[in-house]
Design a protein around this nucleic acid. Structure first.
Length: 900
RNA sequence: GGGGCUGUGGCGCAGUUGGUAGCGCGGCGAGCUUACACCUCGUAGGUCGUCGGUUCGAGUCCGGCCAGCCCCACCA
């Protein structure tokens, strides 16, 4: 082994080169032992990339060297790029959805870092009100305690303790994934700075009259014992019964239908449509409500659909949102018949029954009089469930805090409408508008203990005060006991993480953030709310310039991942078995804009294989002394010019794809270039050049190609690329190395055409050899007749690729393949299967003739020639010419076949 | 009830301003060749859900239908 095994990239003296070799050996030596020894020179290096050996080490180094730390004061002239991470719940752990979301963000920020931007990617977590409280309550339950046994203060302490001990497991998992976040700026939605932001904006909203307290009917979870906002309620179809009940008696009777018979105990009216002739005589009269003895009025209300059911509806203002509104319009009393746990409180036979026990009980009681229940039929209807615990939500009248969203939502919609915020993919904007344009006031109070306590105090006579964060509440007043919806504090995330309300350098430099990356599933929950609060708090400045929406990760059949299906894939499992890079690559390769991302074990293996492929080209490059520094020589072979031309095309394509958030396309482009073109063609052709005096230039080109490919791949697969690139170049890190710029001067159409032609020739001969059963390794004597063809310059390469020897004495051509303006005559020792070859050629000939006919007919179509663009016509002419050439070639080959 | 999406080789997906279909995985066959069997080479396999329309020409535009999915929703 000589010193030029791996020349020093900077051309400094030999010992530096030796050091690089030492590194290389170390890199390859930590992997498992070689399974086989290449023939010839004993280069005893292992052949597989072992991610586990490098990932942890590299990540720790990146962090300790501060590679991800943002500095708002650094390079003021340079553009800033910032992203705030969608804060995962403290209770959460990394799942594939996070892995996808984070891989996208990491790709974006790593590329910007390489482009010289000042990058801030802010990590953090969400306190996740209900979810976290439930976790800790469950823990307490194991000790036989409830939160009430501890009392509020002790319980909240307990939650903090839990958070310190087992919360935030996901942060460690983010390191495994390789997230290049700025850990020095980690935030938590409940920490002091964020609490200050909450207090500040609450007060502003309060003072502006955009937050108010009112008695309303809200969604109530009888298990969590708290109010829920509309979007925390999930609707699902359930089988139920539609029971028709006669109210009143004789001429004064009316039949109503309900799926919730038990609520009739709280009915305070029956409503009909004002124009409904059937019931006009009853409007304004009282009728008797069965079971209760109460008499309730019949009212006329536009809301009632006369065509539905009997056209009459029972009105229970306390337990149904519609009825609540009807009740308000007609000034009806609101009679609550259940407590906060959904247990009937109305005195009588049903008192103490759960709402679901009361339902059949009420129906049974009604049936005792055979004339009251007119019909019972199965009925499927939509029922709201608590998003957190799946309990059926109970509409309930209570005193809650609301944010008046109309003005805020208007601004949030306008920011997208007028283009200040772009949504990718743009189709998703429709969903966004539909939501912001139809949003109800947002119920922000929760009857929980874990969360930001509502900063409102009440005086002895019911006065209210909302002191700012630096103000004291009046002495002796008591604070509201409710806390704010979790989404209230996360809506402030893009600016609260940057120090708002203080006017920090971070805020100056990094707000508005550059992109917000998240799944389309929380467009409503979170994104729209950040828009509302961002615009409001930051005086009209948008919270982010671009919203990048991705889909959900699914299994290989497009099924949602869920425990019950048993198809959940744990990203950490993949990271351990295939590496973080392979995990990331699999996800990004499937990340078409807005589309769901199916993943499967095989895809991950494919990605792992790709990383290994890169490892091996790098190994090849090291063994052959690839050179990554200095100018690329002016004198280059067609092969070299071709690969550089392709490289620069690829750089431009990848750049464009990443600009468009087309991660799948960027990955595909690089995958194919690196594997199909660089490994399968360039390296094979380069082997020939490396054996002669073209070696120095070839080493430089090989180094150049690898250098650029690794840079381009680094944002997507940071670990392998860092490891290989630093080994190849001897430089410190790829993290801040320059992002490649495409050089249009390198584009070389002639070289590309020539190599494509060469590829076709080689493929054709390989095909022939395979069809004829000639072993790929078997050397075959061949005569190449290609006078005048530019391919003649590649004779050595062709002979190597095809394992063709120069014919000696006694050469007898038994196969003649005219292709690409050349003729290859092979000595197949008389072993060729003439019949098979003839069948094959005839089939191809038929195909070519058919194509020629079709194209000829098309070109004969006057309308086509007149109307189609010139380029299209020209393309068809080329096609015809090609087909005709194929026909001639195939006929020639057929004629040249030996008889029999 | 409203809104949106999807339907392309066995499976999962690409297909830019309309010009006769690509990729990965899988299948089949061959093979240790100057890095890689987590490899190489060769190969089979779709007329683009369906009907109709516009056009010289449609997977690519328009309409109907069929199938599947998602989101939003205060019709009992």
């Amino acid at each position: 082994m000589s010193g030029d095994l791996c020349p020093d990239p900077r051309g400094t003296p030999r010992d530096a080169g030796v050091a690089t070799v030492g590194r290389a050996v170390e890199l390859f030596a930590v992997t498992q032992p070689t399974t086989q020894t290449p023939s010839g020179d004993a280069v005893d290096l292992p052949t597989r990339y072992q991610p586990a050996d490098v990932e942890g080490r590299l990540y720790e180094r990146w962090v300790s060297e501060g590679r991800f730390t943002a500095d708002p004061a650094r390079n003021p002239g340079r553009p800033a790029y910032s992203i705030v991470i969608p804060p995962p719940n403290v209770t959460g752990s990394l799942h594939m959805g996070h892995a996808l979301d984070h891989s996208i963000q990491d790709t974006l920020v790593r590329r910007r870092r390489m482009q010289g931007h000042e990058v801030a990617w802010i990590p953090g977590m969400d306190h996740a009100g209900i979810a976290t409280q439930n976790v800790v309550e469950r823990e307490l339950a194991k000790e036989g305690l409830s939160r009430h046994d501890l009392g509020r203060e002790a319980f909240v302490d307990r939650v903090w303790k839990w958070k310190a001990e087992s919360g935030g497991r996901i942060l460690g998992q983010m390191r495994r994934l390789g997230d290049s976040v700025d850990w020095s700026r980690e935030a938590f939605t409940m920490d002091d700075d964020r609490a200050r932001a909450v207090r500040t904006i609450f007060k502003r909203l309060f003072d502006d009259g955009l937050i108010y307290r009112a008695e309303r009917i809200i969604n109530w979870c009888p298990r969590c014992l708290t109010a829920l906002s509309d979007i925390e309620v999930e609707h699902a179809d359930r089988d139920g019964e539609l029971v028709s009940i006669r109210y009143g008696d004789g001429d004064d009777s009316i039949v109503v239908a309900t799926t919730r018979a038990e609520t009739m105990l709280g009915d305070t009216a029956v409503a009909v449509h004002p124009d409904d002739e059937r019931y006009k005589h009853l409007v304004g009269r009282d009728i008797e409500l069965p079971l209760t003895g109460r008499r309730i009025p019949v009212v006329a209300d536009e809301h009632v659909d006369p065509a539905f059911g009997t056209g009459a509806v029972k009105v229970t203002p306390a337990h149904d949102p519609n009825d609540f509104e009807i009740g308000r319009r007609h000034d009806l009393p609101s009679l609550s018949v259940m407590d906060e746990r959904g247990v009937i409180t109305e005195p009588g036979p049903f008192q103490g029954l759960d709402r679901f026990e009361a339902r059949p009980a009420v129906v049974a009681a009604l049936r005792e009089d055979g004339r009251i229940v007119r019909e019972i039929r199965p009925y499927e209807h939509s029922v709201g469930h608590c998003q957190r615990c799946r309990t059926v939500v109970e509409p309930r009248v209570s005193l809650q805090w609301f944010v008046k969203v109309a003005p805020l939502a208007k601004a949030a919609g306008d920011a997208v409408r007028d283009g200040r915020v772009a949504i990718h993919p743009p189709e998703m904007a429709a969903r966004y508008f539909e939501w912001v344009d139809n949003m109800h006031d947002w119920c922000v109070s929760r009857q929980l203990w874990w969360g930001h306590r509502i900063p409102v105090w009440y005086g002895p006579d019911g006065e209210t005060a909302c002191p700012g964060p630096d103000e004291e509440p009046p002495a002796g007043w008591t604070q509201d006991t409710d806390v704010l919806d979790t989404w209230f504090s996360s809506a402030l995330w893009p600016f609260s993480t940057l120090g708002w309300p203080a006017d920090t350098p971070e805020l100056q430099r990094f707000y508005p953030t550059s992109a917000l990356v998240t799944g389309y599933d929380i467009l409503f929950f979170w994104v729209a709310r950040m828009m509302m609060f961002g615009l409001y708090a930051m005086d009209g400045a948008v919270p982010f310039r671009t919203i990048v929406l991705h889909g959900m990760v699914r299994d290989q059949h497009g099924k949602k991942m869920s425990k019950s299906f048993g198809n959940v894939v744990d990203p950490l499992d993949w990271i351990e078995r295939y590496g973080a890079d392979a995990t990331r690559f699999t996800l990004l390769r499937g990340a078409n804009p807005g589309g769901d991302v199916p993943v499967a074990e095989e895809w991950a293996q494919g990605s792992r294989n790709f990383c290994n492929k890169l490892f091996n080209v790098a190994r090849f490059a090291l063994i052959n002394g690839a050179n990554v520094s200095g100018p690329v020589p002016a004198e280059l072979t067609t092969v070299d010019r071709w690969v550089l031309s392709r490289l620069n095309t690829v750089i431009a394509e990848v750049d464009a794809h990443l600009d468009d958030y087309e991660f799948a396309k960027a990955c595909e482009t690089l995958y194919h270039f690196a594997w199909d073109e660089v490994c399968d063609w360039y390296v094979e052709l380069a082997k020939v050049q490396l054996a002669d005096d073209r070696a120095p230039a070839t080493r430089r080109v090989l180094g150049e190609v690898l250098d650029k490919v690794l840079r381009l791949l680094h944002p997507v697969i940071p670990f392998v690329t860092e490891e290989l690139w630093t080994t190849l170049t001897g430089a410190d890190t790829l993290v801040t190395a320059a992002w490649p710029a495409a050089d249009p001067e390198r584009r070389d159409a002639a070289a590309e055409a020539e190599i494509e032609s060469l590829q076709r020739l080689v493929t054709e001969v390989r095909r022939f050899r395979a069809d004829q059963g000639l072993k790929p390794g078997q050397r075959v004597a061949a005569e190449l007749d290609w006078a005048g063809s530019p391919l003649a310059a590649h004779e050595e390469g062709v002979r190597t690729l095809l394992r063709l020897t120069v014919p000696g004495d006694g050469f007898a051509a038994t196969a003649s393949l005219p292709v690409e303006g050349a003729t290859v005559r092979l000595d197949t020792a008389g072993a060729i299967d003439v019949g098979a070859e003839r069948r094959r050629l005839e089939k191809d000939l038929a195909t070519a003739r058919k194509e020629a006919d079709q194209t000829r007919r098309k070109l004969g179509n006057e309308a086509f020639v007149a109307k189609a663009p010139e380029a299209v016509v020209a393309k068809n002419k080329d096609r015809l010419a090609q087909a005709e050439a194929d026909i001639a070639r195939l006929e020639h080959q057929l004629a040249a076949l030996p008889a029999g």
